[in-house]
């Protein structure tokens, strides 16, 4: 088994196990509201960290300006409650245009 196959398998089995928690425990255990709240806050913290590192860094360095500027435009569109499709395509289009204009 290659390391990549192992990674996909572990991720798949683990993720399915997480998803089974609710249906399996249904009617047996009730999570305290405090724990549920902490879980969802943790998810948001993880996603924002992924957003920040994904927007600004490449490997171990700065990703260049084109990507973060595209993400910024997507973020502003999202903030102004633009449809999801516009957020995605807006970010990609701005980054693509900046690169076409010669920005890294």
């Amino acid at each position: 088994m290659t390391p990549t196959v192992a990674a996909v398998l572990v991720l798949a089995v683990g993720t399915y196990a997480f998803r089974l928690v609710g249906p399996l425990l249904h009617g047996r255990v009730e999570l305290p509201a405090r724990v549920q709240e902490l879980l969802s806050t943790a998810a948001v913290v993880l996603l924002v960290a992924l957003l920040a590192t994904g927007a600004l860094t490449q490997a171990h360095g700065f990703a260049g300006w084109a990507r973060p500027l595209g993400v910024l435009v997507g973020g502003v569109l999202a903030w102004r409650r633009a449809p999801f499709v516009m957020v995605v395509l807006g970010a990609a289009a701005v980054t693509a245009l900046l690169r076409a204009a010669g920005m890294a």
Binding site: G70, G74, A92
Partner: peptide
């Protein structure tokens, strides 16, 4: 894919998903 700016799409998706919580 860098030419199409697709690498900017995912952080933007995350922004759209987490903004309501933030």
């Amino acid at each position: 894919t860098g030419t199409y700016g697709l690498d900017a799409a995912f952080p933007a998706v995350l922004a759209a998903l987490v903004l309501p919580a933030l």
